[in-house]
Design a binder for these strands. Structure first.
Length: 579
RNA sequence: CGGGGCGUGGCGCAGACCGGUAGCGCGCCUGCUUUGGGAGCAGGAUGCCGGGGGUUCAAAUCCCUCCGCCCCGACCA
């Protein structure tokens, strides 16, 4: 492609709307433009990268035996009512109605549609397993879209759905997708990690997330430092190793005693007032779980993991209690709740609170706390459980080794769904014995457009993006610095033809611009390879080749140029770990 | 949805407190020169100052209202 016939509107300054580096670079490099909040136009250059990612994903899905389909983006509300998600999915589901007043939604995911399709088609066990996928635009009405392509409302996603005749088959399908994902991300050139995750509202038995490791990631993952263990989990999933001792009913802890704590309704305020550490306190958090009052207790310096609480309760909706509810349940304003004589029936406590000691808790009375509270003796705890968020000081839940926190961006997610949708939608088949059986499902997503943003988050410097050669909008940028030197221009034209004919994905910067302009644009866009032909080089029979990532420059002899280029190019791919 | 900020040529911004009919840099167009890290000179185009309503002789500027965008939080397969 010649630049003068292409369209790459680079910007010198980054638009004020962009905060994170990938967003800034995508805008400045002329790859995307915003239409409205969380919704972007893909310009020619941006689309090239998106397509390259999509093609790698497509190849790996095909290799794994999945079949590509294309499902509608507009979906009938009735299907969503059938699975109950019309009510439970929430406001992220953009709903609309047609001229007849019938309900529709824009597809944020396609379990309903695919299950409806397959239940109407598949009759026999002989047609299973079946894995169908698509690469398509999704719409999720995020409360707060941000960071450009990282969290848009409309985005491009690959989603796959597997149907098996039994659990064993479903596990095999899951494993195949896990492998395909690992291969795809490796080929794309991303540093990533597969971690255990909560399956969340989509439901199902177990799941893994594929996280691109980047400092700017929105997610945190806990990773075991013992490589033979290999434990890695999303923070909301990571189990906390239970070190709590048993909690005998009777102990030597003195009886609870009320202490005055005027106006101290936060952990910090109580600690300051009483000169104690936050770890001496117990926080009592009150929730409305599907309409039922629930209390959850964690140590003062800990954070409750509400996903764990939700899973423990099997609740659909879990909301912090309102100040009015707190007043009604505790008889005190917010900040003085405690487990002793609490009017809430269901009280759960984090494992480490089983320690045989007295805690400081709220007294369910304004401006008062209790000390010497022994949970086993003084409170009615329904159950001690793992309720808190893991910290870097905790041990690996699997091997007891050291764990570290890393930042990541979720680019893929695999779920084993089990019977959740097939049962709700009656997707059955006849088995070998002619008996009706419910299909066992899995679903698997990759954020295609998000991968482009993550690749930039992971690979950039002060000059711009540093694309892996696998997904760069163009692999090579050829620049001629001849000015009016016709010999240089002629030679550049010749090299461009040579490269193009050889099938190299090359962009030829044939603009009549000064060298600095070309260099800066090439660095900004982040083509992994730059070829620079100057007058002096031409005289000496060489062309300069620059590796965008390392900045290393090589001189390629113009004699036998194509071979020299290919050798150099192979080296770049290898250095990226892509060959 | 709560808190904060911002809407002025394509992009980045000034002007607003103190009302007088819009400016700077970059980009864009034309010509000449220039060509190894964002060139120089000369000439030129581009604004319903987010929308609506008000106050005033006069509004980018003051008041009301709506809309949009960004950030933090809540939220989130």
């Amino acid at each position: 492609m010649r630049l003068t016939r292409y369209y790459i509107p680079t910007l010198k300054e980054s638009p004020s709307e962009a905060e994170v580096v990938s967003h800034k670079i995508l805008l400045r490099a002329g790859m995307i433009r915003k239409l409205t909040s969380g919704i972007y136009n893909y310009l020619p250059l941006g689309l090239r990268s998106v397509n390259k990612v999509a093609n790698i994903v497509r190849e790996e899905m095909n290799r794994a035996g999945a079949l590509e389909v294309l499902l509608p983006m507009v979906q009938p509300g009735d299907l969503w009512k059938e699975t109950g998600r019309w009510d439970f999915y929430g406001k992220e589901l953009l709903r609309l109605s047609d001229r007849h007043g019938r309900d529709y939604c824009l597809g944020p995911t396609h379990e309903e549609v695919i299950t409806d399709l397959v239940r109407g088609e598949v009759r026999s066990y002989k047609q299973l397993p079946l894995n169908l996928y698509q690469i398509q635009t999704k719409f999720r009405d995020e409360i707060r879209p941000r960071f450009g392509l990282m969290r848009g409302r409309e985005f491009i996603m690959k989603d796959a759905y597997s149907f098996d005749k039994d659990e064993a088959g479903a596990e095999e399908s899951y494993r195949a997708m896990y492998e395909a994902y690992s291969r795809a991300f490796k080929r794309i050139g991303l540093k990533f990690r597969a971690v255990r995750a909560d399956s969340g509202a989509i439901g199902g038995d177990f799941s893994h997330e594929f996280m691109v490791l980047a400092e700017t990631g929105e997610d945190t993952i806990a990773v075991c430092q013992d490589e033979s263990c290999g434990y890695a989990a999303n923070l909301e999933k990571a189990a906390v190793r239970d070190t709590g001792s048993d909690c005998p009913a009777q102990t030597a802890v003195p009886a609870p005693e009320e202490i005055s704590t005027p106006k101290a309704h936060t952990v910090d305020e109580v600690c300051t007032l009483l000169h104690v550490a936050p770890s001496a306190l117990v926080k009592t958090l009150l929730f409305d779980a599907d309409g039922e009052a629930v209390a959850a207790l964690v140590r003062g310096d800990r954070e409750l993991n509400d996903v764990k609480l939700r899973n423990l309760l099997g609740a659909n909706e879990l909301n912090m209690a309102s100040p009015e509810q707190v007043q009604a349940w505790t008889g005190a304003p917010v900040g003085f709740a405690g487990p002793v004589n609490l009017k809430v029936k269901r009280v759960f406590a984090d494992n480490e609170l089983r320690l045989d000691q007295g805690w400081i808790t709220g007294a369910n009375k304004a401006d008062a706390h209790l000390k010497n509270v022994h949970l086993g003796r003084d409170a009615a705890i329904e159950r001690f459980a793992d309720l808190r968020v893991i910290t870097p000081e905790d041990a690996c839940p699997e091997c007891g080794g050291r764990i570290e926190f890393w930042k990541g961006i979720e680019v893929g997610h695999v779920f084993k769904l089990g019977l959740k949708y097939s049962k709700a939608m009656n997707a059955t088949f006849l088995d070998e014995n002619g008996k009706d059986q419910t299909m066992v499902m899995g679903c698997y997503g990759i954020g295609v457009s998000r991968i482009v943003a993550s690749a930039i988050e992971q690979n950039n410097d002060e000059n711009g993006a540093v694309f892996p050669p696998s997904i760069a909008p163009f692999e090579v940028c050829l620049m001629a610095l001849g000015g009016k030197d016709q010999d240089v221009t002629d030679k550049a034209e010749e090299l461009y033809a040579l490269l193009s004919d050889a099938g190299v994905d090359v962009l030829y910067d044939d603009r009549n611009e000064r060298p600095g302009v070309k260099f800066n644009d090439a660095d900004l866009i982040g083509y992994p390879m730059q070829l620079v032909l100057g007058g002096k080089g031409l005289k000496n029979g060489i062309i300069e080749a620059k590796d965008r990532r390392t900045g290393e420059r090589a001189e390629l002899a113009l004699d036998d140029f194509l071979n020299n280029f290919n050798t150099w190019r192979d080296g770049i791919w290898r250095a990226w770990g892509l060959k």
